[in-house]
Simulated scan of single mutants.
Amino acid sequence: MQTNTASPPYASLVAVGDSFTEGMSDLLPDGSYRGWADLLAARMAASAPGFRYANLAVRGKLIRQIVDEQVDVAAAMNADVVTLVGGLNDALRPKCDMGRVRGLLTEAVERLAPSCKQLVLMRSPGRRGPVLERFRPRMEELFACVDELAAKHGALVVDLYGAPALGDPRLWDVDRLHLTAEGHRRVAEAVWQTLGYEPQDAGWHVPLPAAAPPAWLTRRVADIRFARQHLLPWIGRRLTGRSSGDGRTGAHFSAELGRPFWATPADDANPGPVTGWRQVGPER
């Protein structure tokens, strides 16, 4: 993983993707999500006055929707850095045409790579357990495509899938699909280092300390709660063709990070459609 002592000359960041990039489940007190992209943007902004950032990611989006709704918007912004993570929602569906997913991911990369100084792709993390084992072949097919596209288009790849620490169930929320706040912090550090910034936590990939497994009853209670609160609603959305992202638009603004350097391309009260940058707060 490359690192430099001087901060790279990046002055803007656009994040493209689904719930992983939107920030679920790094929940803030006001009910909004933060996530690794917001954390990364805050770090980058600290060393780049006038820094600009937009998070276009929306939960539940499939790769076709990401291409149709986010890619051209992101490309038009001509940001220094664009992060793209998508396709995993497709791969986790019972029926999935992986050839189509690879083709759409290729289309996204071919449109984004020429529009920015540095495109960043990821091999997404997976929570250890039966779901990961069931879908591992699809995930690895997706990640092989990511590696090929990165080599062809000069993109950086953040290998979160290859970091055993991020498979630890303790770094995943109760829905078993999204990282906790600590998980998002580790992802932000991984992307930060991959971009060439001086490490702030060289051990982001180090596993958590070993702990005794929870008791049988505790595990069964957790399984029942997971099924009732998350699995059954997820199955219901799949059967009815709905998505957790229906009616949502990207480009969110985090009040926690609303310092003068912060910028978003949309109106705070109505974040979309995104058409260009707008400074939030006074200039530095």
Rank of each mutant, 00 (worst) to 15 (best):
L160S: 07
L104S: 11
L149G: 00
V101K: 05
A151S: 10
A79I: 04
A79K: 08
A79D: 09
G86Q: 10
R127W: 11
V101L: 05
C145F: 06
L105V: 10
A151I: 00
D72M: 11
V71E: 09
P130T: 14
V157E: 09
G60Q: 02
R100F: 14
E140D: 13
F135T: 10
F135G: 08
M122C: 15
E69Y: 10
E107W: 09
E148R: 15
D68K: 09
A113C: 07
V157R: 01
M77L: 15
K152W: 04
L160C: 11
V158G: 03
A91G: 11
D68E: 15
K152L: 03
A151V: 00
Y161I: 06
G103F: 05
L92K: 12
G129N: 06
A79Q: 06
A113I: 00
Q65C: 00
D90W: 01
A151K: 06
A113N: 07
A150T: 02
R64M: 13
V73A: 12
D147T: 05
A91I: 02
M77D: 12
R134L: 10
V73H: 07
R127D: 08
G129C: 11
L104M: 13
L88N: 10
Q70Y: 00
Y161P: 12
L160G: 01
Q118Y: 04
A79F: 08
A150I: 04
P137H: 12
N89F: 07
Q65L: 05
Y161V: 11
R93L: 14
G87M: 02
L104T: 08
A155P: 06
G126H: 11
G126A: 15
F143C: 00
V120Y: 00
L142F: 05
A155R: 06
V157F: 12
K117I: 04
D90L: 09
P94T: 08
V146Q: 02
A79M: 05
L160N: 03
E148W: 01
N89Y: 03
R134N: 11
A74E: 08
R102T: 10
L142A: 00
A76S: 15
G87Y: 04
N89W: 05
R111Y: 00
H153G: 04
A151W: 03
A74V: 06
E133P: 02
R100M: 13
R93T: 13
V85N: 12
G103I: 09
E69L: 13
V82P: 05
L119D: 09
D159V: 02
K117C: 01
G60W: 02
G162T: 03
A151E: 10
P137E: 03
R93F: 02
S124T: 12
L112N: 08
D72F: 05
T106V: 12
G162L: 06
Y161D: 14
R136Y: 03
M139Y: 14
M139Q: 13
V67M: 15
G87T: 08
H153R: 10
M77S: 14
L92R: 10
D72N: 13
G126Y: 08
L132N: 14
I66F: 08
V101S: 03
Q70F: 04
V67L: 15
D72T: 11
S115D: 11
K152G: 03
F135P: 09
H153I: 03
V67G: 12
L112Q: 01
R127V: 13
